[in-house]
Design a protein around this nucleic acid. Structure first.
Lengths: 297, 297, 297
DNA sequence: ATAGGTTTTGTCAAGCTTTTGTACAT
DNA sequence: ATGTACAAAAGCTTGACAAAACCTAT
C-alpha cells in the first residue's frame, strides 16, 4: 500500500480526490457531512485537504456500495474497518495479473513497478513466479496470438519484467550450494521462463551461472568445463530449436546432468536426449532436482 | 572531484533555471514567495542565484504537480522530500542513510519502504546491510543515547526494518546448504543485527533456522539437536547478557561450532567460551565461516 | 592537448589569445578587471602576457557560458575549478575495468557484483557508463574477435551487466520530462549500449519507454503512437541491420525526432534517413538532444 | 443541482536596477 | 593600455487580475 503513498503525507484537494476515485465533489462533501466518512483538514483559506487514509476510506466505501449495501451502512463499515490494507485479501493471483497487465499494456512502467513492489513484499518468490509471472507471460503470448496484444506491448512488458527478475537474481552465483548452468538453445530468444526457474533453484540453495538467450551449445560446454555444474538447464519454446542440436545435446548429456525446459521438449526426449524433461510445474521440478542434488551434497 | 565537474556548485540565474525547468521566471518567483520552495542566494546586486538543490526542488515540484496535487501541497512535499537527486554517485551510502532516517523519523512508513525498494533494487544485499542498514541502526542507537531520538521512533524504525528484513529472509530455511541456527541470548531484545547476519549467510548458500530474540539456551540446544547445524550464532549487545550463561555456552560449544556476535562478546571469550567471536565486519565473517563450512560440504 | 599547453613556452599576447579563443581583446580585459579571471604578467612595456593557465581558464569560462551560466558565475567557477578536470580521479577507470573483467572472466558473479556496488557508490552514473561499462564492453568485443575471450564469457558478462543496468533503470518511465522510445533494429541482439544511453537520458530528466533488442519498426511506430515521444532512439551495431529498413526509417523520421545510435550508422545517414546520427560520445549526445528538447519551455 | 462568494494560482505590467559586451577618448 | 561610458538584455519588486477550483447554503 505504500505505492499509494509514494507521495507520503499526501494532501489532496477535493477535485483531485474526485478524479482519483470517480466520485463527484458534491457527493464527497455529502458523505462527509451525512456520515462523517471523511475527515479532511483545512487549508488556511478553508479548502478541504484529504490524506491517504481518506483515499482509502473512499475506496472501501465504493467497494461496499458495489456489494449492495446502502450508503449509510457502507459508510459505517468503511469508517471503522480498522483493518489496515495489509489484512486484506491475501493477494488474489488473478487480480494481481490483471493489475500487472493493465499497467504494462499502457506502457506505464511506474505503475507496473509499484504493483511488483507490492506483490514481492507480500508473497513468496515461488508464488510470485508460479502464480503470477509465468501465467501472465503465458496469457500475454496467447493474447498476442489472437491479435489482442501488440508486439510493442510484449517487448515492453518483457523488458520491465526481465529487469525486475534480474534484480532478484543478483548474487545468485555466490555461495556453497550445487552449481547450475542455465542457457536458452541457439536461436531461442525467450529467457524469462528460464530466469524464473533459476530463481526457484536459487531459493533452494543452488548457485546459478546464467548464460542467457540464444547460446550455442559449445558455449554451454565451455562454461560447464569452467564451473563444473551438477546440472545444466537448457530451454526452448519450440521443437525447431531442438532439432538442429540433438546430437550435441546427447553428447552434453553424457558428461553432465541435463534439464530440458520449455514446450520445445517432449516426453520422448527424456530417453532420446539423455536429459530430464522439466514439466510445466516449475516449483515441483525445482524441488525434485534439488532433492537429487542433495543426495550428493 | 568527479561530481564537482558534473554538478558544479551550480549557480544559475533565474533565466537559466527557467530554461532548464520550463517554468517561467515569474512563476519561479511566485513559488518562492508563496511557498518558500526556493532559497536562492543573492548576487551583490540582488539577483537570485540558484543552486543544484533548487533545480532539484523545482523538478520535484513539477513531478507532484503532474501527479495532480495543488501547488501549495506540491511545494510542501517538494521542499522536504529528501528524494533522490539526479546527480552524484548512483547510490551514496551516506545519502541513503539520511533518506531512510528522514522517513522513519517522521513515522512515514510509505516513504521508508520506497527508499528501501529503491536501494534493494540497486545494490546487493551485502552492501545494503553493511553500508546502510547496520550503520543506520548504529546511528539510531547513538542518537537515542544522546536523547535526540525517542523510544517511539526507535520502535517504529525497528518494526519497519524488521518486517522488511524478514521479507527478504523468506524461505531462508530451505535448500541444500549448510545449516545455521541463530538466536539472541536470554534477555537480549535486539535482533536486527542477527537477522542481518543471517541474510548474509543465506546469500552464501546457508540454510537458516532463526529462533529470534531472548532465547533460552535450552531452546537453542533443542533446536540444534533437531536440525544438526554446522554453526550456531548467538548474539548479545552487552556483556551482562553473557555472564549468566557462560557455563551453558561452554557446554554448547563442545558439541557445535559457535559464533558469538555483537558487542557483548570480547576477544577473550573466544578461548574462554569455545566459540568464534565475530568481529564488527559481518561480511568478512560471513565469508570466513562459509569458507570453513565449505570444507566439509 | 592539455599537456602541450602545459609546456612553459606558452606566453601569449592579448591579440594571440583573442585569436585562439575567439574572445575580443576588450572582453578579455573586461573579464580580467571585473572577475579577476586572468592574471597575466606584464612585459617591460606593460603588455599583457598570458600563460597556459590563462588559456585554460578562458576555455572553461567559455564552457560555462555555453552551458547557460551568466558571466559572473561562469568566471567564479572557471577561476576556482581547482584542478584540471583530469586531476586525480578517485576511481581509476582502467583499474575498475580490469577488476570487473577479472571477476566476470572467471564466472564469479558475486565478485563482479561487489565491484559494481563499490563503483556505483563512488562515481556518477555518467562516469560509470562512459568510463567503465561501455569501454569494458568494447574491450570484451575486441578480445572476443581476437579469440582471447570466449562466447560463454561474453554471454555471462552481458547477463550480469544487463541485470545491473536494468536495475538502475527501474522507474525510468516515471516523471514529467520529455519522452523517449528506445529500441534496437530488427535482428540486432545487442542492447546494453542502448540501455546505457537510456540511463544517461534518464539522468537528464527524460522518461524512457524501452522496447528492447530486435524490435520491428512497426512495433516502434505502434509504441510511439501510444506515448508520443519527443525522440526515438534506434540502435544497430552493423550496417546490415540498417539496409533492410531504410525506407521505414525515413518514414518514421518524418513524424518523430530520431536518434540513430551505434556503429551501424554513418554520417551520411543523417541526411539520407532524416535522423540525427549519435556519435561515439554518448554523454555529449545526451546533452545535445536534451538541449534541443528543452525547447518545450 | 444551482447560485453567489472566496481562495488559489498562473500571468502580466510598470518602473527601476544590475549585468555585460562593446565603443571611445585619452 | 586604461578608464569611462553606454545600451541591450535580464532581473527585481509591487500590485493587480482573471480563470479555475472550492466553499456554503438554498
Amino acid at each position: 500500500m505504500y505505492n499509494l503513498a509514494m507521495a507520503p503525507a499526501t494532501v489532496l484537494r477535493i477535485g483531485e480526490l474526485s478524479k482519483r476515485s470517480g466520485v463527484s465533489p458534491e457527493l464527497l462533501r455529502a458523505w462527509e457531512s451525512r456520515y462523517g466518512l471523511l475527515r479532511p483538514t483545512r487549508s488556511p483559506g478553508g479548502l478541504r485537504l484529504y490524506s491517504a487514509d481518506d483515499v482509502e476510506r473512499v475506496r472501501r466505501m465504493q467497494e461496499h456500495l458495489a456489494s449492495g449495501l446502502a450508503a449509510a451502512e457502507a459508510a459505517a463499515l468503511a469508517t471503522d474497518d480498522t483493518a489496515s490494507p495489509l489484512s486484506g485479501p491475501a493477494v488474489d493471483p488473478a487480480v494481481a495479473r490483471a493489475r500487472l497487465a493493465s499497467s504494462l499494456d499502457r506502457y506505464d512502467e511506474a505503475g507496473a513497478q509499484a504493483v511488483l513492489d507490492e506483490l514481492l513484499a507480500t508473497v513468496t518468490i515461488d508464488t510470485f513466479l508460479a502464480q503470477i509471472l509465468l501465467p501472465y507471460l503465458h496469457d500475454l503470448g496467447e493474447r498476442w496470438k489472437r491479435g489482442e496484444a501488440s508486439v510493442a506491448q510484449e517487448h515492453f512488458a518483457s523488458s520491465v519484467l526481465r529487469g525486475r527478475m534480474l534484480a532478484l537474481a543478483r548474487g545468485w552465483g555466490r555461495g556453497v550450494g550445487p552449481q547450475a548452468v542455465l542457457a536458452s538453445l541457439p536461436g531461442e530468444q525467450h529467457d524469462l521462463g528460464l530466469i524464473a526457474f533459476g530463481l526457484m533453484l536459487r531459493a533452494r540453495g543452488w548457485r546459478i551461472t546464467y548464460l542467457g538467450a540464444d547460446t550455442p551449445l559449445a558455449t554451454v560446454a565451455e562454461a560447464a568445463a569452467s564451473v563444473g555444474p551438477e546440472l545444466i538447464v537448457l530451454s526452448a519454446t519450440t521443437a525447431e530449436r531442438v532439432r538442429p542440436v540433438r546430437a550435441e545435446l546427447r553428447r552434453l548429456g553424457k558428461r553432465y546432468g541435463i534439464g530440458l525446459a520449455g514446450p520445445g521438449f517432449v516426453d520422448g526426449d527424456e530417453r532420446a536426449l539423455g536429459g530430464r524433461v522439466l514439466t510445466a510445474d516449475p516449483i515441483g521440478e525445482a524441488e525434485r532436482v534439488t532433492a537429487d542434488a542433495g543426495v550428493h551434497g
